[in-house]
C-alpha cells in the first residue's frame, strides 16, 4: 500500500464502516457469546467503533513509522501484523472496562473471533477488490474523496 495520512484515515473509516459493518452484521449471530441478539449487535458494533476510533490514532503512528522507510510504502504484511497491537489495545481497554456502552466482560474467544475475522476480511478487501470500483483510490494515497 502506498498511503498518505489523509488516505489512510479515509480508507480506514470507509473500510471499517462498510466492510467491517457488513461483516459484523453477518458474524455476530454466530459468535460464542451468550447474549441476546440485540445485545450482541450492540457489543460487536461498539467494539468495531472502538477499533475504528483508536485505529485513527494508530494511523498517525503508522504514518510516522512509515517515514523511516525510503520507499514510503506500507508493506502488505504490516497490515496484518498491526492486528496484534490494535487488537491488544482494544482488548485491554475492554478488560479495563473503560469502553462506554459495554458493561459485561467480553469473552476472549468471541472477541478474537470477531476482531480477527473482521480484520482479515478488511485486509483482504483493502488489498484486493477495493481498487475495482474505486479506480482513483490507489493512486491518491488511499483517498476516496
Amino acid at each position: 500500500m502506498l498511503p498518505t495520512l489523509n488516505g489512510r484515515i479515509q480508507t480506514r473509516i470507509f473500510l471499517l464502516v462498510v466492510v467491517g459493518g457488513i461483516w459484523t452484521l453477518l458474524i455476530t449471530p454466530v459468535l460464542p457469546v451468550d447474549l441476546p441478539l440485540a445485545d450482541r449487535y450492540r457489543v460487536t458494533f461498539i467494539v468495531l467503533l472502538t477499533v475504528l476510533v483508536f485505529g485513527i490514532v494508530w494511523e498517525f503512528i503508522y504514518h510516522f513509522i512509515q517515514q523511516f522507510r525510503w520507499e514510503k510504502d506500507w508493506p502488505t504484511l504490516f497490515g496484518l501484523v498491526t492486528a496484534v497491537n490494535e487488537g491488544a489495545l482494544v482488548w485491554v481497554l475492554l478488560e479495563l472496562g473503560v469502553v462506554p456502552g459495554i458493561s459485561s466482560p467480553v469473552p476472549l474467544g468471541a472477541y478474537l473471533l470477531q476482531f480477527l475475522t473482521t480484520w482479515i476480511v478488511v485486509w483482504l478487501v483493502a488489498n484486493g477488490p477495493m481498487r475495482v470500483p474505486f479506480i482513483h483510490w490507489r493512486f491518491r494515497g488511499g483517498r476516496l474523496i
Binding site: T4, Q66, E71, K72, D73, F139, G141
Partner: peptide
C-alpha cells in the same frame, strides 16, 4: 539499492502527492 526505478510511493503515495 531501491526496489524499483523510483521509490514506491511515487505511484500513488506520499511522493506522488
Amino acid at each position: 539499492y531501491q526496489g524499483f526505478n523510483y521509490p514506491k510511493s511515487v505511484w500513488g503515495g506520499q511522493l506522488k502527492a
